[in-house]
């Protein structure tokens, strides 16, 4: 029975740790499928986490700790992510900028701006105050009371939203005209343009979706795990999401499983520590795993990853 409980707890923790990664990775997928590299995921998550924390805090102040405030914070974070992704979209789509550089600039800007405004809003403190309210776990009555498998039936609302997002993304990408256009624009923009698809508009929408989703990831971390925003709230999550996206070969379902797998690496850490396994396998090696696997996948040692053909190439009207 102890093993069953262990597996149940591991599953529960994996989902908690992975939710934010799945959001960001799926966001990245939309952008990259349309041909725009998005290594600004990290920065977008930072903006989401910052906005989520700040808005929730001040709504709480106004309403006095209402259950509604984390939801307002969550929605504001999505909006902020969409807005913050626009400079990247404009630079990469309209001004043919190097998309990697523009993404790096946005990552810098995000952490700089988030900490700057945190200091402005919280009297020079580099972190927001701890939130009065955050998301509570939703649970199924009776089933969740079970001592052993109970935690399988308890989840944050964000985790439930996550599964919906993945399914919807799959449907949108593969079963709707918009999804077909999105993929066409990422594979062969010239041909898509000839067929009357507006390459620029499709890419703008894709980047904005990625901004909203990545910011959702950042807000999720703040509103379920950390309960405040500091400079280290988002530390590499955006890059692990990027790794998950590649490991999942730009496919929504596979990307979700990749993110769950990487989230499990984090969840495993606490379990392994519990059982004293970290005495034999250093924690750092567990941290390294996602990154190492990504390189191996790309090198073709574990399956082959094929990126969208037009990824990273600005589309110029009239070019061949």
């Amino acid at each position: 029975m102890e093993w069953l409980k262990l597996i149940v707890d591991l599953t529960h923790n994996t989902i908690v740790f992975s939710t934010a990664l799945v959001f960001a990775a799926i966001g990245g997928m939309f952008s990259e499928r349309s041909g725009v590299v998005n290594i600004a995921l990290e920065g977008l998550m930072i903006i989401g986490a910052f906005t989520g924390a700040v808005v929730t805090f001040f709504v709480d102040q106004a309403l006095g700790g209402s259950f509604i405030s984390p939801w307002i914070g969550f929605l504001s974070a999505i909006l902020a992510g969409i807005i913050f992704s626009l400079p990247h979209a404009v630079a990469s789509i309209r001004y043919e900028a190097d998309q990697v550089v523009s993404g790096i600039a946005l990552n810098f800007l995000a952490i700089g701006a988030a900490i700057y405004f945190t200091k402005v809003l919280f009297n020079g403190s580099a972190q927001t105050k701890t939130l009065m309210t955050s998301f509570d776990k939703w649970s199924i009555p009776f089933l969740s009371d079970n001592a052993i498998v109970g935690s399988l039936f308890k989840a944050y609302p964000t985790s439930i939203i996550m599964f919906f997002v993945v399914v919807i993304s799959y449907v949108v990408l593969f079963k709707t005209p918009f999804g077909l256009r999105l993929r066409a624009v990422g594979e062969h923009p010239r041909a898509a343009d000839t067929m009357g698809i507006n390459v620029f508009r499709t890419r703008y929408i894709a980047v904005m979706i990625s901004g909203g989703l990545a910011a959702m990831g950042g807000a999720t971390l703040v509103l379920t795990t950390t309960n405040n925003f500091t400079h280290s709230t988002i530390s590499g999550h955006g890059f692990i999401a990027l790794a998950a996206l590649i490991f999942g070969k730009w496919h929504p379902i596979k990307t979700m499983f990749a993110a769950l797998f990487f989230g499990m690496a984090t969840a495993l850490k606490s379990v392994l520590q519990q059982f004293g396994i970290t005495d034999f396998v250093p924690v750092e090696f567990i941290f390294i795993l996602p990154y190492l696997l990504t390189i191996l996948v790309l090198a073709g040692l574990i399956g082959r990853a094929e990126a969208p053909t037009a990824l990273g190439k600005p589309y110029k009207l009239g070019s061949r």
Binding site: P87, A105, F108, L109, I111, A113, I115, Y116, K119
Partner: peptide, 12 residues
């Protein structure tokens, strides 16, 4: 941190 913002803008 304002200077990080400025540097980011310059790169952008």
């Amino acid at each position: 941190e304002i200077i990080n913002i400025v540097i980011a803008l310059v790169i952008y």
